[in-house]
Amino acid sequence: MSYTTEIQATARDLLSSDQVSCVIGYEVGPRGRTRPAFIYTADDADRLVWNQNCTHNLTTYLHQKLRPNGYTSAPAETERVAIVVKACDSRAINVLVAESQINREQVHVIGVACDGVFEGAGLGRSDGATLQHRCTECGERTPVTYDTLIGEPQAVDTLDSEHDLAHLEAMTPAERAEFWLSQFDRCIRCYACRQACPMCSCPTCLYERDDSQWIGMGNGLNEKRTFHLGRAYHLAGRCIGCDECERVCPVDIPIGLLNRKLAGEVEAAFGYRAGLEPIPSPLTTILSGKEG
């Protein structure tokens, strides 16, 4: 059975037995582009697909499903949804659970043992051969948490993921500043990086308050740099490396570099990688392991 038919069968089963109200998965749109899909009836399960253009991290939709009235209200406890995840996306489930954003029992995780997704996927720019950068460096292709596993668990050698960071780290501070300023200069503050991110769950972003207290509303370099660095800092020890922020960026800012840099720092300091287990990052907790 192909992954697609397995996912469809699982979804049909979950929906017809009322175990979940919705299956969040992937479909192919009329233009042939793979995109997120929300399936509510067993009959619609045929729309679901699996292919190597399934790049989106669907866990970003869990908030809207399980907390329909916003983050400040209690979760909708009766709601239960199923979601299709890749190995990287599954780490986001663990972080969301660790941070009490969702209850694990309310999510039926359909994990896919993934072979990597293509560059330009979802945007009609996929050549059907080149894997995304993150996938060429991915060491765990089996989801870390799942209720149903599609495909066989695979072991992959962990690859060296430091080379693009090393290139920047070898520069002088002035060269690095120029590199980043020229990258941030293109930013149009569309906030797609933030919106696509499952970890960016603040009800009001610090950098989009209407009082200009932290950064102004303008599109100046100071503001854009502060937004990107601030966002990277807020994701330190929380980012699971799905690189959605980088994929959705309309002006190709290499945001993933910042996230990888800080993930490395947190791992070096605390021996912790986000999402491998449902425990909060040591960076945001104190000695007892519980928020004081």
Binding site: A37, F38, T60, C190, A192, R194, Q195, V248, P250
Partner: peptide, 16 residues
Amino acid sequence: ADMAERCLSCRICAYV
């Protein structure tokens, strides 16, 4: 509502 369910509420469409 169906079509917009997958919308991320970013502003790319308006800004481009």
